[in-house]
């Protein structure tokens, strides 16, 4: 938490800040001074109903949940809007059939690429951006590694899985796959 401003609107005659006293009362960490000082004790007595009410309100709050349907309403707007409408055009294979282009949205390609990287390999992909260049597809991903993962092995394996996918399933060339490891994590 950020450093709080030092000017205090509310100091008791003994110099204790009302904020601090309240925090201690709430956390059950009252100091010896606060326990014995008449000013602190009087203030604590004054705050008692508010603290009880706050406790009751927080207890009730825990029962408050978002109304049913909120998630669906939000997600239907989100899905209708999508994020990026950019697409990549897949090369045509074979000469049969009616003419026509096949385009896949970047967000769909990113999702498929992420899904190719099995977390069991110790790497979790976050951001995964793609760009088409004359040399082929450039993938820029961020990743978290699970504790104990050998990073060069995990990233090499992820690159392999993603390249195979791009080449075999999309029929595109891969120019490069950059993986930026941003953190080491433990899975819950």
């Amino acid at each position: 938490m950020a450093v709080e401003p030092s000017d205090d609107h509310e100091r008791l005659p003994c110099g204790t800040s009302a904020d601090t006293l309240l925090d201690h009362l709430r956390a059950g960490t009252v100091t010896d001074h606060e326990r014995t000082c008449p000013h602190c004790r009087a203030a604590a007595e004054e705050f008692r109903p508010l603290l009880s009410a706050l406790g009751a309100a927080l207890d009730d709050d825990r029962q408050v949940t978002a109304p049913p349907g909120l998630l669906d309403d939000v997600m239907s707007v989100v899905r209708a809007e999508g994020r990026s409408r950019s697409t990549i055009r897949l090369p045509r294979t074979g000469g049969d059939g009616a003419p026509g282009d096949t385009r896949v949205r970047h967000s769909a390609v990113s999702a498929m690429l992420r899904a190719r990287v099995d977390p069991a390999g110790g790497l979790l992909l976050g951001r995964c951006r793609i760009e088409e260049t004359s040399e082929g597809l450039v993938v820029a991903a961020t990743a978290r590694v699970l504790t104990g993962t050998v990073i060069p092995e995990a990233t090499a394996s992820a690159r392999r899985d993603m390249s195979t996918f791009v080449e075999d399933r999309l029929g595109l060339r891969v120019a490069r796959i950059d993986i930026d490891v941003t953190d080491v994590i433990d899975l819950p």
Partner: peptide, 12 residues
Amino acid sequence: SVLVERAQDGDD
């Protein structure tokens, strides 16, 4: 943080 980055990429 992984979910946030994916969502930033448009993963609904």
